[in-house]
Design a binder for these strands. Structure first.
Lengths: 232, 232
DNA sequence: AATATTAATTGTCAAAACGACAATTAATAT
DNA sequence: ATATTAATTGTCGTTTTGACAATTAATATT
């Protein structure tokens, strides 16, 4: 029997930065940690990678367990592996970010876990290196969203242009001109205008749009250019 | 003493996709695996993550050991963690890609390891999931290089525009118009024209350029747009 | 019924970037 | 002096961009 002689073995975990959008602000979903050390402190949703699952599987499992949601948009970010990052025992953690429709989550709310949405800029201090993970996730989200139409994952199936607009501004932490944004986003050809209007925000109402699923699938891996130029 | 009760522990490794450029083609550096299983088969440069080092540290150590080079451009790609990816024992591997100046390497050649450059498109079959890793690395390199001026890392300090041109074509596996490329790359303001010429390639000779280190440091994290538009 | 209010929607224009295209130049070789 | 070869550079019409505010569609108010 071949063996890899006496190499050290480690725990491997996953941690998920769950982003949501309430129509006004970007939020993240945090939980109160359920085990020592740092029990009852706010932390990211996480868990250990089981013997018969990949890290991707584990992240999906953790999300399902804690939010009740399946098929969530999930993207591997990077690994966190400083030898001393966990004070108890060496644990490497694979960071993921997830994009979920905040309203779907509320419908699925699972009270077994004390989870709570926080404004991205008003979140509590987190345990270990989770603060760094959140910062990294924001950066990664920004990059990804500049080239790929993924922010739709945080909106309901029917959404309006003003909603999208605010979401893009939140993610990029900048103001975007209404006219230019509208022009750019419609020119992708990814949006289908519906007859119905959303009247909750104004008297005039804003037309609902939905994603063109076919084009979305085709373009999800393509380079787009969804943000104003950040070159200068 | 707090413990994470009976969670499974795994081996954690790093594997590096080392890219180089010989002036004509994109290449990767492979080694003959030195341990069972699959001993003497071609594989990526890799090694286990030691007890007192992070995966990043481990990748740098492995590169130093196998190529003699330090301070190499190294970027974490993703983790490979399918439960059965290593037939002997569960091992998760963190994939990195490295960009090195092929000539520097030749100067540092370390004969302790049977390493060899292969044309990216004529490489041998690799062990385990290393073929997938190479494919992923190419994709990631393409993305990164479209926004960030990192391909210079594969060129000598003094390089010519035609060299850069070929390198961009190789990485993106496409033809790029000479005039448009030249216009775009010089408009970044990252290049400093030298008085000297490289006469090896032609009678006329091509002017050498070097990187503007200051601007490079400032722009390395900025969005550029170094590739022809891939939107359509 | 007319008017006020509010947010959504749309238009213009000058500047910049783009993509497609080939002629000119600087050196060496004949 | 001429031929050869690869490097370098220029034009132009089209598209995209960014900066700018007026118009529209509905409800609420008078």
């Amino acid at each position: 029997m071949i063996e890899y002689s006496r190499q050290p073995h480690y725990l491997v975990a996953v941690d998920c930065i769950v982003f949501g959008f309430d129509g006004e602000h970007l939020k993240i979903l945090l939980v109160k940690r359920g085990l020592e050390p740092e029990i009852n402190k706010w932390s990211l949703m996480g868990g250990f990678v089981g013997a018969d699952e990949s890290p991707d599987d584990a992240a999906n499992r953790v999300l399902k367990k804690m939010t009740g949601l399946e098929g969530v948009y999930l993207e591997q970010m990077q690994i966190y592996g400083e030898p001393t990052r966990d004070p108890i025992e060496r644990t490497l953690s694979v960071g993921y970010f997830a994009l979920i429709d905040i309203h779907k989550y509320e419908a699925q709310l699972n009270d077994d876990y004390e989870a709570e949405w926080f404004l991205i800029n008003e979140r509590p201090k987190l345990i270990f290196d989770h603060n760094q993970m959140v910062a990294d996730a924001r950066t990664k989200l920004r990059y990804k969203a500049a080239l790929h139409p993924i922010l739709f994952e945080m909106l309901p199936k029917k959404f309006t242009i003003p909603q999208l607009h605010i979401l893009f501004e939140e993610v990029n932490d900048t103001k975007i001109d209404t006219r230019n944004f509208s022009r750019k986003i419609t020119s992708t050809g990814l949006l289908i205008k519906l007859a119905e209007k959303d009247k909750t925000g104004s008297k005039k109402g804003a037309f609902y749009f939905k994603l063109d699923k076919k084009k979305y699938a085709a373009n999800a891996q393509a380079f787009l250019n969804l943000m104003p130029n950040l070159k200068s």
